[in-house]
């Protein structure tokens, strides 16, 4: 987090130094700051900043792919599937051991990805209740969440 603030600071200084401020200049400044932080990584307090940023980028790509797949899935479900082929149900998912911020990110991802929406987080932050449109195999739904999102989110929050 501290490294990110430094990175942002470098970008703002870069912007103020330029003769024609624009969003492109800001992006360049951010990249320069990122490169500097990468070079001086070993002296700074948070030595895994670069790794985390790359993990975040990878996660965003995976998320974008899932989001597009979710939309194709919705189009197929809405236009071509009959009511009788739907087997919706509530499914619980174990989130004990995650921090509240990570649960928030996970619930957000669940809402925007194929076949599931978040319904409830229990008061003790240990269980996420979600609604799946094809709930015949809840184990598969949980395994997919584990595989795609839990690992991706943990790779950049920790």
């Amino acid at each position: 987090m501290k490294s990110f603030v430094i990175n942002l600071l470098i970008a703002v200084i870069w912007l103020l130094l330029s003769s024609e401020p624009s969003s492109g200049v800001f992006a360049v400044g951010f990249l320069v700051g990122f490169a500097l932080l990468g070079v001086f990584q070993s002296v700074l307090e948070s030595p895994d900043y670069v790794r985390r940023v790359f993990a975040l980028g990878r996660f965003l790509l995976v998320f974008a792919g899932e989001f597009l797949a979710a939309n194709l899935n919705v189009i197929r479900t809405v236009l071509f599937r009959s009511r009788d082929s739907l087997h919706p149900n509530f499914i619980t998912y174990d989130v004990s051991g995650l921090r509240p911020m990570e649960i928030l990110l996970l619930s957000y991802c669940v809402s925007l990805t194929p076949g599931s929406t978040t319904v409830k987080v229990t008061d003790d932050f240990t269980t996420l209740v979600l609604h799946a449109i094809d709930a015949d195999d809840p184990r598969e739904v949980r395994a997919r969440l584990d595989r795609v999102f839990r690992r991706g989110i943990l790779s950049f929050t920790r």
Binding site: F67, V74, T77, V78, R83, L86, L112, T117, V119, H131
Partner: peptide
């Protein structure tokens, strides 16, 4: 779609 929750699936993803 048949019920509230299934409908919210369609709205959440396609609207976004």
């Amino acid at each position: 779609l048949p019920d509230v929750l299934c409908r919210s699936h369609a709205v959440a993803k396609a609207m976004t």
